[in-house]
Design a protein around this nucleic acid. Structure first.
Lengths: 189, 189
DNA sequence: GTCTTTTCTTGAACTCGATTAAGTTTTGGC
DNA sequence: GCCAAAACTTAATCGAGTTCAAGAAAAGAC
């Protein structure tokens, strides 16, 4: 859980008392491979800080196949903000790709925490700013580059990732079919 | 400027004093068609609330052509958060598509305002949450639908928009060429 | 260690949308 | 009101990536 405190401290200043408050109100949770933090149609009840492991956030598209829109890795928060905040059913699944550990911030606790520690409201504003910028960047990649270019970019950015997660998940995240990914790999080797 | 106050009040509670503080620290500005609020390589100095008009946020892609990543319309904020907050050169242009009026929140004033009115920090957290969710939704549209489907979806969602802005901008925003948009329209009529 | 499930590969036919290169229509400046 | 610039259309050709279908390899389960 110290990783969470360290992360927050990179963005805002916390007193020793703040730290204790945060630790006392958040919970540590282990998540087994393939377990879900959230399922479609459920109302999201927490924001999760990933201490260790990998999660995927996906939905079922028109044709009934899984489409990954986001990977969550160490030191990122993962949730469905829309469902969490507006208390509406989620369109997404959040599932552990491998054994993981998270810090859980329940939505009922969140308000209490913001009231006690205003710096946290700021911290989340900054986190969201980054997430928003990252998702703009993602749209740029989709528009500017071909599938092949996106794959090479992704594999040079997160080489260890390709070892840890199934190829078909990478294909889904990058927006093409597993067959096409196979073809790209065949070309290179 | 009352539209801004009304918008903020939809998300957080403001006292009469808060309102006056906000109005005193923000500036009203008219922006002529084709004028820029931000240019590539400049550091973004403000967050703009659009009172009236339409803006486009775009960048120049690898091939040297303009790629629109976002439209800003009445009652939305538009800025480059990454550049604004981290004081780094922007990758984007923000340009008025038609004559517009904005409320300007300068970055040096922003901190002062957050200190005086903590509710505003919360307001921006909520705004960013929405923007982030919207951009996720955008990625979904790109992945799930063909260009033609995206066009029909867009035109049913914002019919008045198609009248107000050039087609080639719609094509750029939707991620295809103006020629292809012409083809879609020819098919239907 | 074998059996089942999951993941990955290969190839042929096909489709969506890009590119190129005209020509046409609309808009706006003066 | 006229001219130039900006915006839109049409058509032929081409390529990135999909779909379908089958088989091979790897990973768990017991």
């Amino acid at each position: 859980m110290q990783r969470l405190i360290a992360h927050i401290s990179k963005f805002v200043e916390l007193t020793e008392e703040d730290r204790e408050t945060i630790l006392s109100l958040m919970q540590y949770q282990e998540v087994k491979k393939k377990e879900y933090l959230l399922r479609q149609d459920a109302i999201c009840n927490a924001n999760y800080f990933i201490l260790k492991g990998v999660f995927r956030k996906y939905y079922i598209d028109e044709k009934g196949s899984e489409q990954i829109i986001h990977f969550g890795i160490d030191n990122w928060w993962i949730t469905d903000y829309d469902s969490l905040d507006r208390r509406i059913p989620s369109q997404y699944f959040i599932q552990a790709v491998e054994h993981a550990e998270v810090a859980v911030l329940d939505w009922r606790v969140q308000e209490e925490l913001f009231a006690k520690i205003p710096a946290l409201e700021r911290y989340f504003r900054l986190i969201l700013q980054r997430a928003y910028a990252a998702s703009m960047q993602r749209i740029r990649y989709i528009y500017d580059f071909t599938g092949e270019e996106r794959y090479y970019h992704f594999s040079s950015l997160y080489p260890e990732f390709l070892q840890r997660i199934p190829q078909y998940m990478v294909a889904s995240y990058l927006g093409f079919t597993p067959e096409f990914l196979s073809k790209i790999r065949a070309k290179k080797i």
